[in-house]
Amino acid sequence: MPRTSKKSIMIKVTIISILLIAGSLFSLLAAIGVLRFPDIYTRMHAATKAPAFGILLLQTAAAVYFATFYAVIISLMVVVFIFLTAPVASHIISRVAHLLGTPKWDKTVIDELENDPDVSIPAKITGNRAKQ
């Protein structure tokens, strides 16, 4: 049984409170971004990165609060898995949105995928393959 003084408990409570409130505020930021951004691509940008960071903060708070081996391993697993899969999922969504021709923002500067003859139009590629 470790010796727990009153001061160390107070420090732990402060750290956990800051982490919890900061994590939920990052999630709120993501939701505001989904409402306010003008475009599917910018919206996806807001909706996949900010909640991942918020979940990182919340899981760190849970790991500090419980401080058992089980809780720390589960928290690490969730954080690693979310940081591995959130970019892949957002990439798939934006790829499909570009395939479907979702309208872009008026002030979009450059779209290299649109003018790339190799990867842009899979329907044309499959059509060529069907002809050969």
């Binding site: 993501a30 919340l58 969730v78």
Partner: peptide, 17 residues
């Protein structure tokens, strides 16, 4: 429809939180 998928993804992340 992709906008709705993004919003659903966000809702799932929020439920984890």
């Amino acid at each position: 429809l992709p906008d709705r998928i993004v919003a659903l993804d966000l809702i799932a992340s929020l439920s984890i939180g």
